[in-house]
Amino acid sequence: MAQVPVMAFTGERYTPERDREIAQEHWHRYAFARPLAAGRRVLDAACGEGYGSAMIAAAGGQVLGLDIGEDVVAHARARYGGTPGLAFAQADVTALDHLPDASFDLVLSFETLEHVEAQERMLDGFARLLAPGGLLLVSTPDRHVYTDLTGVQNPHHVRELYRPEFEALLAGRFPARRLFGQKLLFQSVLWSLDGATSPAQAFSLDGQAIHDGVANAPMYFLAACARDAAALAALPALSVFGDQAEGVYEAYRREVVNFRNAMAYIAHLEAELKRRQAPE
C-alpha cells in the first residue's frame, strides 16, 4: 500500500506531524475522550486530518468524522480508512440536518467553535444529535488569555469567546455541564510506581504560598455537556497528558543552553574590547 502524503500544516487544522506545545494540547483532548468511546456511536465534528477520529475508533467507538474540506476528508480516508469502525464524510458541522435525531452517544468538537460564526446553530445540531444519556465534549480558547493577554490574533478564528459567553451558549442547551481548563504548564509530577490508585492531588505555588488545586488561568476551555448529570459521572477531576520524548522541555533546555552560550560569548567579547581599549 502506498504511503499517504502528509497533509500540509496551514495553521487552520492541526496535523499529527507537528510537535511540541500544539501537539500536547491537541492529543490530550482526544486522550481525554478515549476512555468514553468504547461501544459508543461517536461524531467527531470538524475532524480535520483524521488522527483523532482514528484514535477514538481504535478505542472501540463507531466513529463518523466530518469535515467541511473535501480534500481533508479525502486525506483522512486515504490515511485512516482501514481502521475498523471508522468512516469519514464531507459536511458543514453547522448544518447537520441530514443526520437523524439522537444518532450519537458521544459528540466531539475540539477547537471548532471559534472557527465558525453560526455557533448557536452548531450547538443546536449537537443537542439534537445526542442520544439519551449522551455526552458532548467541546473545546475552545479563552479569548482573554489566548488573544487579549498575548496580543496575537489568530487569522483562522472568526468568533472567539470569553468564559461567560461560552458558558451561556452551553447553558441554554445542556442542563448538565462540567467545565475544564486546559493549558500547557511546567509541573513537578509525583506518581505511584506500585500500581496504587489513590485520589489525585494538585498544588499551585503563588510566590512562597502553596494552594490546593491548579490555579493557572486556562488557555482553553473544554466543556462536557449532557442532558442528564449521570452522563458526567465518569469524568475525572484532573487529567494529565505527558510526552515521553519531552519535546517541549527539550526545546526549552536547548534555548537555555543557547542563551547561556550567547551570554558567555558576549562577556568574552566585552572583556576583549576592554583589554584592547586599556592604555598600554
Score class of each variant (00 low, 15 high):
F9R: 00
P16S: 15
E25Q: 14
H28D: 00
Y30C: 02
F32T: 12
A33G: 05
L36Q: 10
A37K: 09
A38R: 15
A38S: 13
R40A: 12
R40Y: 08
R41P: 01
L43C: 03
L43P: 02
D44M: 03
A46F: 07
E49K: 01
E49F: 03
I56A: 15
A58M: 01
Q62F: 02
G65Y: 05
D67Q: 09
G69A: 15
V73T: 14
H75E: 00
A78Q: 09
A78S: 12
Y80L: 00
F88S: 06
F88A: 11
A89S: 10
A91W: 13
H98S: 00
L108Y: 04
E114G: 03
E114M: 13
Q119A: 02
E120Y: 01
M122W: 04
G125W: 02
G125N: 13
R128N: 08
L129G: 04
G133N: 03
G134N: 09
L135G: 07
L137G: 13
T140V: 15
Y146Q: 11
L149F: 03
N154L: 04
P155F: 07
R159P: 03
E160Q: 14
L161D: 07
R163N: 04
A168W: 11
L169I: 04
L169W: 10
L170Y: 01
A171F: 06
F180G: 08
F186V: 05
Q187E: 06
L190G: 12
A196D: 10
T197N: 06
S198G: 13
A202Q: 03
F203Y: 15
S204A: 08
L205Y: 04
L205F: 05
D206F: 06
G207A: 09
G207Y: 07
A209I: 09
A215P: 01
A215E: 11
A215C: 07
N216W: 06
M219G: 02
F221K: 01
L222F: 02
A226H: 03
L235K: 08
L235F: 07
L235S: 11
P236G: 08
V240I: 14
Q244S: 15
A245Q: 10
G247E: 14
E250M: 10
R253P: 00
V257F: 00
N258E: 14
R260E: 13
A262P: 01
I266W: 13
E270N: 06
A271E: 14
E272F: 04
K274F: 01
Q277L: 10
E280P: 03
